[in-house]
Every structure is written in C-alpha cells, then in structure tokens.
C-alpha cells in the first residue's frame, strides 16, 4: 500500500479508479485501425473522458480526425503518463524524448490530435517544441520549412515592413522626464 502513496492525488485507493485501470477501451482511428487502451490512460484525454462519462463509449470510440500512426503515438504518451509509479522526473524525461526525434509534419499531427482530444500536457509539450524550432529563424526559412507560400503581394510585403518600423511591441516607461 505504501507504493500507492506515490500517486500525488492518491486516487488509487478509490475502487472506481481500480476499475478504470482494468477496464479497456477501444479507440478507432480515421483509417480504421483499432487500439486497446486502459480506461485510466484514455481518460487523460478530456475529450475521451467526456465520452466515457456520457456513456457513449459502450463499444468502440471512433476518432475520425486522428489517423492510426498519430493515434499510436498519442497512446504511447497516455500509457506512460498513466503508468503506476512513474515519477514526474521520469515522465518529464519521457516527454523530452517523445518529441525530440519527431519530424515537423509529425509534430503538427500530434499537436492537432492533442488539441482535438484535449490532452493538455501533450499539447503543451508539442507546441513548445514547434515554437522552439521557429525561434531565431528568418521569414524565408519558416516558409520553406513549413511549406507555406506567402500570400502577400510585393506591395503588401513592402507596406508591412514599414508598419513594423512604425509600431513596436511594448511600451516605454516614463522615467525620463
């Protein structure tokens, strides 16, 4: 029983929580792949938790906006975070490794899925990673890397550059006079 105290919320003592750990849900991706996952891991997604609470989760939970590859990644994340006895430090390290090798396209897949499934921790982790990759880069680099075509006309682009010179972010304090 001493081990269970490692869970900060101490939910493990709750018989309902025990049930959640043994109960399995089936998630179905947009391309028809099915995945089994323990309920305790699945409900780390607020969207799935809501579906379970509303009793819509009788059979298979369809997730039409998440493809199989992405869902598999997400489930890996959920399983780790629902793992008994995984320390915060362990989870943090896992998160770091989880996103570090991902290609840009995959990062966006996961961020979209995390947003749709409402998995706050994953969303935070992935969007930070995307943001990190965009720091200290030129406009051209970002366009090229993300395959974004500029939809500005040359005139608009010129105008915009001027505006950036006329209006800066931030406000000066008035200690000068």
């Amino acid at each position: 029983m001493a081990r269970k105290n490692r869970n900060p919320v101490g939910k493990n003592v709750d018989p309902e929580a025990q049930k959640k750990k043994t109960r399995t849900l089936t998630l179905k991706s947009s391309d028809g792949q099915e995945f089994s996952i323990s309920e305790s891991a699945a409900v780390l997604s607020i969207a799935i938790e809501n579906m379970v609470e509303d009793d819509c989760a009788g059979g298979v939970i369809p997730l039409p906006l998440v493809d199989g590859g992405t869902l598999a990644r997400v489930i890996t994340y959920l399983n780790k975070h629902a793992e008994d006895g995984a320390s915060d430090e362990e989870k943090r390290k896992f998160d770091e490794e989880f996103v570090s090798g991902m290609e840009m396209g995959v990062l966006f897949d996961v961020v979209l899925a995390a947003n749709y499934l409402d998995i706050r921790g994953l969303l935070r982790e992935v969007r930070r990673r995307i943001a990190d990759r965009m720091k200290n880069k030129s406009v051209e680099w970002v366009r090229k890397t993300f395959h974004i075509e500029s939809d500005f006309t040359p005139e608009e682009e010129e105008q915009m550059k001027k505006e950036f010179a006329w209006a800066w972010e931030g406000v000066d304090s008035d200690v000068d006079d």
Partner: peptide, 29 residues
Amino acid sequence: DPNDRNSLAQVCKQWLRVEGLQRSSLRVF
C-alpha cells in the same frame, strides 16, 4: 522574443492575423 514574433507574423496572412490578435502592447511612432 518580440523579434521572432515580428518575423513569424510576416510568414503569411493567417500568421499575421493570429499574431496580431495576441498582441497586448504597442508603441506607435
């Protein structure tokens, strides 16, 4: 870094719009 945000705003119209919505302070010359 505000310079990063300035530069990202210039990527395309959507990014310009979204970045602008986030902006809470501005100094106009």
